[in-house]
Structure formats: structure tokens, C-alpha cells
Design a protein around this nucleic acid. Structure first.
Lengths: 344, 344
DNA sequence: GTGGTAATTGTTTACGTGAACATCTTGCAA
DNA sequence: TTGCAAGATGTTCACGTAAACAATTACCAC
């Protein structure tokens, strides 16, 4: 219409726009937006009205630039496709929301040196006040993840170096309970299906299983190494069937336990009649497996809650307090375990 | 030491700091940071060196304030605890990473009017360039979710109003295939375990099931309404056992199918001998259920990919192009379905 | 009435970046 | 030698916000 070129993209209304409409200074608008008390009631009403009129939305970037706070937590995760990671992320998201923070997720394709570091760097450029690393990798050590801005970090599910703040499930006690449960039922020994070698939770569970056997004077049999998936459990289940001498299996997660049970069923073995099975995780579905699975319950909600709690403390106090918090597990006995036939 | 109070918190090094060390202007540092070509090679090296020396990290807030872009996608989701949502989020995260964007998750406790709107508003204050709503709620309509800044939005898994850009699994065809499969095996009718009433995907699957029966002159039996959980499937399974006249069940997801099968097993019914079961989703575990579950495979990865693709287009072109994209499903026949005994 | 105090509102400024524009080299053709 | 284009670099400024400080008003005790 006119010769003037108008600003190409309509950006949202700013405090200045609100101020003009309300007939106040933009600082007063800021005060209203931040719910400061020292604003006259009538003025506040007028400003709120003006905000509505111009459709004011606070500009997060400007606010963050000014305050240095993003009100957001970064989460680095290897995959969302495992029950544990998903549950933990869910809990972290809920806990973060309670303290009015959002969660920014970065998924790493591959837990190798380069990618972790890269992701961390990528995330530290992002708008986050702190980072949770849900990660299973032997590589994690202080040197690997250099902290460019000394950002608060909490690590879940890892044997990370002492410099880190760690929140984790008490893998050791959980695996001990599972193994002891089978031994107490009268099984002569317990075989183990472990998670992948690169995983620290897998390692912890395997070590604890072996230690429990050793303490009772039993030499641990060889470990079957899986990769957390149902498929690997199934494959290993067939190997176990082929052996013919196994009466009790402790799988490092429920999915592998499920796969193994399928192999047993296919071979005509009864669970728990011929062979007992214990899992780890206590997925929602585990109680509906056939038979309902005896397993070690993990309190992922608590893990997530503690992550955020630790992280927020580090953020607010600007201190770094390394340490390890362990969340207890609970053995849930269902129908996949029983005394061995020989003992019956 | 001196009477001067020093700035309390050490903020990261800025471009100005780098510039001072490198002996250039901060604009040149900016050019190096943004990989512009018009910088002398020697100068670039010097700046990169200086960046390393002072530990420079770009300030995301300042950059976002200047450019108006956050390089982040917001995702509003009701729960991460269903297989589908989790998988979709996973795919979205991966697809977003490919275009160098992060993902900010907001979990809604409850899909009621207030919370959706509130979350949307909360998210629109956040540092995101666009929003994906993974949501199942009848309430979604253009009026409900007012778009204050006219932010790009893509909706998944919903029957949202025509104003929205929607990406969804082809629920209708999937449910039709599942139902037809059972009928083709010779079952006189097929019973349905649906998802919760408030869910549109549940509604679509139920409608399509009913339509498939009707087309063949069969009056659809009453629907059993579940809530997606294994528990509800188990409860309904027991009801089905009590009826005694059911030979074929189509469950709206795999978890409910699993629960129902557990109830059947407990009652001594053979699957598929006495009763056939079909699920929907094709979880990783479904092939290891006992028996391995016949189900409708959903391509969540593709859904996530298309979401980001559509969203990025809207973000980049600043246009809004409503429309519905359907991702095909695939019936996966395993061992939970067979011809009815009467027909054998 | 005067001084003082508390409550409210306004003004100035800086956060770190990148676009727009200005300036300064360098090299080469005329 | 001069002129001039192309490339490299510097300067200025605004994005929207909130802290720090300044100014104004109203009220109350004496």
C-alpha cells in the first residue's frame, strides 16, 4: 500500500508494546510479568489487560540472556527403547516440571568416545542449566567428558568416575536378592544372562550374581551375554535348552527373561516346573507374562526424582558435590520360580 | 583482597573475550563461529586458538535473541509409558537431531482442557521453533488450543480439527486387516478390546473393527473398554472367559492382548486352540509372548520422521499447510491366531 | 507545616550476538 | 602511477529483558 517495507516477520509483542498500550514504563510491565509485589493493584490490572490485548508472550531468549538461567534440564540418553531409560526419562520429566523446568533430550546414536563428547558439547551450547546423563558405557570418565563451562552434571546408571554425582539403582543388592532367592529354593546353582559388556549396570548385576554364588561356595558357571533385547534372550534360551542341565536362570532384565522363557516353552520345558526364571526391572507387562515373572523391581521414579533434586541443588548453590546415591530395589516373587524337581 | 566486589558468578567467555585474546574484533569472532567464508585463513586459526584458550562456548540465548531461532522442537505428550508414545518420541528425537535441532519434552499430567492449553502456553514461552503434540483427546480443536504466536504445530495420533497438520498411523486400515484376518480364518465374529474412550486412535480402531464386521453382515458384539494397560486386558480377559462363547479377540494394543492371554491361560484355555488373539502395535516383546502374538505393526519411526519433516517445512517457509498424512500398517501373523475348533 | 519514610513508577544500562554498514587493505588492469 | 574491485576487518546498533539506581508521590508523626 505505502512505499514502506514493513518488517518481514511479525515477531511477538514485547514488553515495550505492552507498556505503550498500558501507559506505563516497560519496567513496570516486567514487574507485573515477574509477579513482583511492588506494583499498584490498578496498574497491575491495566498491564494485564494490555498484555492480553497485544497478545504478549515473554521472550524466553531475552529473559535467559538477562538472567543466565534457562529453566531447562538437558538429558543425554543412548536410547529410549529400553524400559529403564524410558521410565527414568519419564520420571525426570515429571520431577523437572515440578520445579518449573523443561527437559531437553539428546539421543546419542552410539556410545563411543566421540559421540558422547560431541553430544555433551552440543548440549552445553543448548539452553540448559544442567545435564543428566543416562548412560551405560565404560568410557565415562572425567577426562572423556570435559566440562567446558563446568556445568552441573548428574549421571545415572553408570560407574562413572568419582568426580561425578551419580544416582543409580542399587544393582548389587538387587542381583544378590534375585540369586539368593533361587538358591534358597534349593537350586544347586544359578545361571546368568547378562546385559552387554559395555554396560555398567550389566556388569554390576553380573558381579553381584557371581559374588553371591561364590559366598556359598558355588563356582559361578559361564555367563551368557545378551544385549538387553528379547531376541537375545530367546537365542540364549535355546542354548540353555541345549545344555539340558540348567534349573535356574537369572536374567539381567525382564525382556531377556521373556525371550528365554519363550525358548523354554518351545522346547516343551515347564516354567517353573523344569526351570525357574528371574528377571530384573519389573516392567508393567512382567506380571502378565506366562508365567508371571519373578523379578527385581526398580524404582525408576525415585531415581528420576533424585536426579533432579541433586541437579537443582548443584545449579542453585553453584557447587559440585560428587557422590553416589543408591535407590533400593525390591524382589517381587511371582510364578516363574519354584523349587527344582530334584529337590521336590 | 581489594575493596572491589568482583562479579559473583563466572559466566562463560564471550566473543568479546575471544576477540581480545585473538586481537581481532568480536565481529570477526562471530564470523568464525558461524563459519562464514570471508575470513582470512591465518586470522581464523588465531581465533580458533583463542576460543580454545578461553574455553569459548556460544551463548545460545543471545544467539536466539538475535536470530529468533531456537533450533529446538517442543513435544507435548500425555505419557511416555505407552509403547507408541515412547517409540514416537524416540523417532522424533532422532529425526530432529538430523536437522540439528534438539527436543524439549513437556509431559501433561492429565488430558483435560486446562492442562493442554496451559502446557501449550508454557511451551510457547519456551525456546522452541515449533511444537509436536502427541495426544489423544477428543478435546483437541482449534478453539481449544489457541495459538498465541501462531507457532507451527503438528499433531500425532489424534482426530484434531481440520486446521491442524496431522501425521498418524493408518488406524483404519490396520484394524480392518486385523479383523478380516480373524474372519478369514473362519471365526463367526470377532470381539474387541478397545482403548479408553477419550482416545482417538482407540475410537478409530473400534470403528474400523465394527465396520469390517458390518460389511460382512455381522452385527458387532459389545465392546470391552480397556485403558491400554496390561492390567485392563487381564481384567477383560477374565470377563471374556466367563462368557464362554468367544473364539476371536482383537485388542487395540499389544499390552491389553497380553493381559487377556494371561487370563485365558489361567482359565486353561489354549491360544490359539480355543481362542485367537490379535493385537496392535507390534512391540519388540510381542514376538516373544506365549504364544507369539499376531499383531498390526506400526511404523513409529516413519511417523516421527514425517512429523519433523512437516514441522520443519512449516518453520522454514512460515506457512501453515493443514493436512493429514497416514502411515501404512502391516499385519504380522504369528502364532496367536488359528481357525476356530468348530471349523477344524 | 515540616521532615521523613515507604510505596510506586521511571530511566539507564548491559547481557552476547549478528546484521548492516563503514573502512581499510591488497592486487591488478589500464 | 592511478584507479578500482574484491576481500578482510572493524564499528555501530538492536534484539527483549531485568537489575540498579533515580525520581516521584502519599502518608504520618511531631
Amino acid at each position: 500500500m505505502t512505499g514502506l517495507s514493513r518488517p518481514e516477520a511479525r515477531r511477538g509483542a514485547s514488553m515495550a508494546d505492552v507498556a505503550k498500550v498500558a501507559g506505563v514504563s516497560s519496567q513496570t510491565v516486567s514487574r507485573v510479568a515477574n509477579e513482583k509485589t511492588n506494583v499498584d493493584h490498578a496498574t497491575r490490572e491495566r498491564v494485564l489487560e494490555a498484555m492480553k490485548e497485544v497478545g504478549y508472550q515473554p521472550n524466553h531468549a531475552a529473559r535467559a540472556l538477562r538472567t543466565g538461567r534457562f529453566k531447562s534440564i538437558g538429558v543425554i540418553v543412548f536410547t529410549l527403547s529400553t524400559f529403564g531409560n524410558m521410565k527414568t526419562l519419564d520420571a525426570i520429566t515429571a520431577a523437572a516440571a515440578e520445579v518449573d523446568h523443561t527437559v531437553t533430550v539428546i539421543r546419542i546414536p552410539d556410545p563411543t568416545r566421540g559421540t558422547v563428547s560431541g553430544a555433551y558439547r552440543r548440549l552445553s551450547e543448548q539452553a540448559v542449566d544442567g545435564v543428566v546423563i543416562i548412560f551405560e558405557a565404560h568410557l565415562l570418565d572425567r577426562a572423556e567428558i570435559t566440562l567446558p563451562t563446568d556445568q552441573p552434571v548428574v549421571v545415572v546408571d553408570s560407574n562413572a568416575g568419582d568426580g561425578f554425582t551419580v544416582v543409580d539403582t542399587d544393582q548389587t543388592t538387587g542381583a544378590r536378592e534375585a540369586t539368593a532367592h533361587l538358591l534358597d529354593l534349593g537350586h544347586e546353582t544359578v545361571w546368568h544372562i547378562s546385559g552387554p559388556e559395555a554396560s555398567f549396570s550389566a556388569l554390576h548385576r553380573a558381579q553381584s550374581w557371581a559374588a553371591t554364588l561364590s559366598e556359598r561356595g558355588i563356582t559361578p558357571p559361564p555367563v551368557f551375554v545378551g544385549d538387553w533385547t528379547t531376541d537375545s534372550g530367546y537365542r540364549i534360551g535355546k542354548e540353555i535348552v541345549a545344555r539340558g542341565d540348567v534349573t535356574a536362570v537369572f536374567a539381567a532384565n525382564d525382556q531377556m527373561a521373556l525371550g528365554a522363557m519363550t525358548a523354554f516353552h518351545e522346547a516343551g520345558l515347564q516354567v517353573p516346573g523344569d526351570i525357574s526364571v528371574v528377571g530384573f526391572d519389573d516392567m508393567e507387562e512382567s506380571k502378565a507374562f506366562w508365567p508371571p515373572l519373578t523379578t527385581v523391581h526398580q524404582d525408576f521414579t525415585e531415581v528420576g526424582r533424585l536426579c533432579i533434586q541433586s541437579l537443582m541443588r548443584e545449579i542453585e548453590t553453584r557447587t559440585h558435590t560428587p557422590g553416589r546415591t543408591l535407590v533400593p530395589t525390591r524382589l517381587v516373587v511371582r510364578d516363574s520360580t519354584a523349587a527344582p524337581k530334584s529337590a521336590a
